[in-house]
């Protein structure tokens, strides 16, 4: 089973604060998923490439031209906090 420390490390990487009860629950749940997928390690995959595009499309690009990007006010309207037309965040430094 995954350790408590491992779960806390992952929760930090995922930027989700977990309660002690959740840490314990995810120790069990994630371990269950890892056990479930264990069998894959036995499947021979030498020489097979990794699927990066399921339909085989490659390097799709469009012309580099400016287009209307949408209404700024409508977009900013959903932000919890704005100031002078900018997103407002807590001080970092």
């Amino acid at each position: 089973m995954l350790s408590k420390e491992e779960i806390i490390k992952i929760s930090h990487l995922a930027r989700i604060e977990l309660s002690d009860a959740e840490v314990e629950k995810f120790q069990k749940d994630i371990s269950a998923v890892l056990d479930y997928v264990e069998e894959l390690k036995q499947v021979g995959t030498d020489g097979l490439d990794i699927v990066s595009s399921v339909t085989g499309l490659e390097n799709v690009s469009r012309a580099d031209v400016a287009v209307e990007g949408g209404n700024k006010d409508e977009i900013m309207h959903n932000a919890p906090e704005t100031k002078d037309g900018y997103y407002k965040v807590k001080a970092i430094l």
Binding site: V37, L40, K41, V43, T45, L48, D49, I50, V51, S52, V54
Partner: peptide, 11 residues
């Protein structure tokens, strides 16, 4: 990576 290789087998 392993999963995405097995996925190739399925495709």
């Amino acid at each position: 990576k392993k999963a995405q290789r097995v996925r190739r087998l399925i495709i």
